[in-house]
Amino acid sequence: MTTTEKTAAVSAPRTPEAAGSPLLQVRDLHVEFHTRDGVVKAVNGVNYSVSAGETLAVLGESGSGKSVTAQAIMGILDMPPAKIPQGEILFRGEDMLKMTVEQRRRVRGAKIAMIFQDALSSLNPVLSVGYQLGEMFRVHQGLSKKDAKAKAIELMDKVKIPAAKNRVGDYPHQFSGGMRQRIMIAMALALEPDLIIADEPTTALDVTVQAQVMDLLAELQREYHMGLILITHDLGVVADVADKIAVMYAGRIVENAPVRELYKNPAHPYTRGLLDSIPRLDQKGQELYAIKGLPPNLLHVPSGCAFNPRCPMAQDVCRTDVPALAKVADGRGSACHFWKETLHG
């Protein structure tokens, strides 16, 4: 199983010196949580890569392991209870899991930054946003208080917060949800990182504000030529901005593909089911297609393919053998025994 998964990962250009080499590569990553009820295998052999200027969307429902993977990359998992028994996270070819705590800390924030879903709880409520933005420069670059404040205003302008000069002394609760998320983006951008991981950055926002924030993020990514990992459960958000998508289910990547191909012709029954089950704004269907059953309990993941109890195509082999991520086309893989039938059905 691992061998086939590796070939899929290999299909991306591999020589680190090459111009289009991936910024970040996750290889065969496993994360487990040791709880009283047993071992929860949250991430189970995940492979993906992002290059500079590229947007990878990681799509999955709650419990799919999409956020845990991101936390493992950032090095912000609580260990214990979490454990990484196996895998590599290569940043510019160097395995971050083998770095010292100090090396890791230098990468975090400066090279890889993260944006969270809930901006209000990610910001310190008793410090002004200007102070919190400036802190990045004071700590990492040793700037004076005055220079740091100037930089903070510059950043707030950059993320299009109106009247940045007047609002630099305001506290997080004085900003609206959309503005707070902009401040989070500004903080992530502060040290001009190479890679941004955005974990459901617009889920808590209203649609009209969502569009503003997504646009801003895409624009800044282009300007700074950053890699972007966008973690989301929303197929709609992904369609607009991502270059490629990795769909996760029960800790594994079940399908990865360039964005257009995945929407046009999914190669995994789970992806197909998800696409069919969302109502469309531009047409009114009769009955919605519904994927039957419930997301798996990670303490008792079904044997074989984890999706088999919910899959309309499941056969005996699906209940016994874990499907490897088979190569569907260049840069495309599907972890389904019957991907050919799915693709053409």
Partner: peptide, 19 residues
């Protein structure tokens, strides 16, 4: 502003982004 889960449609749409 509603994202449409279809890159081909969503690229072709006119979007009104409110300020």
């Amino acid at each position: 502003a509603v994202p449409v889960p279809d890159p081909e449609v969503s690229g072709a749409r006119e979007r009104i982004i409110l300020s």
